[in-house]
Design a protein around this nucleic acid. Sequence first.
DNA 1: GAATTGTGCGCAATCGATTGCATTTAATGG
DNA 2: CCATTAAATGCAATCGATTGCGCACAATTC
Lengths: 355, 355
Amino acid sequence: MSKKDKATIHDIANKLGITASTVSRALNNHPRISARTKELVHEAAKEINYKPNSFAVALRNGRSRLIGIIIPTVNRNFFSSIVRGIEEYANQHDYRVVITQSYDNYEKEKQTVNALIDAQVDGIMVSLGKNTTALTHFKKAIERGIPLVFFDRVAEELPVSQVVIDDFQAAFQMTEHLIQQGYRRIAHFNSPMKINIFQERLRGYRQALENYGLKVDPELILYSNLQLEDGRESVASLLNQGIPFDAIFSASDYSIVGALQELKKNGIKVPEAVGLAGFGNEPFTEFTDPPLSTVDQVSIPMGQSVAKMFFDLLESEEKSLPIQKVMLRPKVIFRKSTQKIASNPVAKIAPATPF
Amino acid sequence: MSKKDKATIHDIANKLGITASTVSRALNNHPRISARTKELVHEAAKEINYKPNSFAVALRNGRSRLIGIIIPTVNRNFFSSIVRGIEEYANQHDYRVVITQSYDNYEKEKQTVNALIDAQVDGIMVSLGKNTTALTHFKKAIERGIPLVFFDRVAEELPVSQVVIDDFQAAFQMTEHLIQQGYRRIAHFNSPMKINIFQERLRGYRQALENYGLKVDPELILYSNLQLEDGRESVASLLNQGIPFDAIFSASDYSIVGALQELKKNGIKVPEAVGLAGFGNEPFTEFTDPPLSTVDQVSIPMGQSVAKMFFDLLESEEKSLPIQKVMLRPKVIFRKSTQKIASNPVAKIAPATPF
DNA sequence: GAATTGTGCGCAATCGATTGCATTTAATGG
DNA sequence: CCATTAAATGCAATCGATTGCGCACAATTC
């Protein structure tokens, strides 16, 4: 309405009786500009509230100072915390962040990648959708020379840097914990998807059983989409088929809550008759009755790690692009839902194990 | 690395032996360009995979096709659902969305607004932070002629369009429900913040009590930050002081979960001895034991409503800017936590009441 | 057949910032 | 005091797309 016209370097130039070139150089601290002029320019800039036009800069320099994040959904504690970590780091470096959601939908993910490329982001950080199999859309970005970093849900086939947590270790520790508590017929809920995180969790589960001389019973491994309803159904299925079990380790917090509800409905006591452990440390795992043991995916450190890796990559660009892989140590949290041994009624949190 | 050079209209022009002007006009369906030429241009564009350079367009047109969203945090079902609604609508209109979080921090909110203005977004949609009092940062946007739309947490003092839910009605209905269930000493948890939503919820609570001839007891109205811990403390405080109560209606789901935990700890039965009702319909309210009655804030319709209002505003721009206020009807959800009367064990959901 | 109206397209400026290549001015040398 | 060099700035092109104006040529009118 009123002062809709933004100040430009030309306004500064006119004000001072010099040219825009000089103003530009002064603002960019060019060595061939006198200290006095720089001073004047900065003053004038402040006075008329000059802000560089980001589009002009982007057009001229070919760098947008925009980075894209692709995550399955923002509505998960884990992802939103990561985003927060990235955002803070990026803002400090004067970059803006575009958050996009794939909703675990392959088509949407493809569109999103293309949209980001068209938007000319300077780089993309991705956590893959559950249903993503083909990766051509990312190859396109790589060909374009757009830096790429994967986190959590990654694709091993692509030559890109990545940050993950040690899902194997976490699953191993949780399963081990269940065994040590005295549970013997431990069921496992997992996803049929071919994503690293689920496969690693399964591997950890198996390894723990084997290490303790327990048989891995295929009947006890149930595949589903790991939502709340899936958890209920999986438990119902076990009960209906009369398959005995005394604990469940789920690769997702959601399905373990479903399991809890179904068990309660059938009058089965947790943790006395059946122990329950989830994965993800969603906030609600603390609110259930009993509170659920779970795995914290150290989202904040992951966000920072991703951002740092990314900006390292940005700067090293045009030179060699060393592919980095960082694996963070998750935190296994033991709560009441796995306390068959009632020795220690206080929930305890595993200390951050050093690397 | 390889085809890093993006195709431009000049490439198309060269290919066809015409000028960039013609190409531009052909792509924009200018009436003075022949059908034949348009056809050729479109073909060529497809062939060399031409994508307009958004910065050049933005620079030239002064419109960025970017809109900013400011919300307290993305990690709340309510907000992320709204974002989703907005995003879908915006993408259909070929706009991109920048999501930013204020973390309920006034300073951060100010910075964010400025950052968005500097990024030259074409408009901003905001849900205010809890601690926002001054509104000068928004006035700046208004002066700049940047369309603004508020939702949920709004400021009445500013001449901008807004979408809210009927917090008063929802609070009234929930309190009424508690009364009808037979609860008489109904406590209320609220925030000391001067935000519309909290004040309206308080008003609804009082009105219901009055309508049913119940006294509004100041001792029963507790102010806090409404987090989980606050809920525990509020209950503890009531118990310690020996203030009798047989129900709690909280303006937040988080504090009602805290209340539930504290009551359980003291062996007080819910819903038999004390009824509990929250606000927000966070997913975890379904997972607690017993499941909690709460208010669904119809986030999806709100997102759509906000987006629609916003784009209407964008188009009507330069003309009159009628200020619109939309008030959506929330859904009151009755679950087990308020079922003093055990007549109906099945959780029932209030039908969407028509306006 | 000359004048008028349309149609299809090119020229060149523009958006705001950057930058290679002058050009001007000041400082230094002989 | 004039030449040489360094220091400080200006000129003009550029990034890619858009658009007012104008120029050809064709179609229409009387």
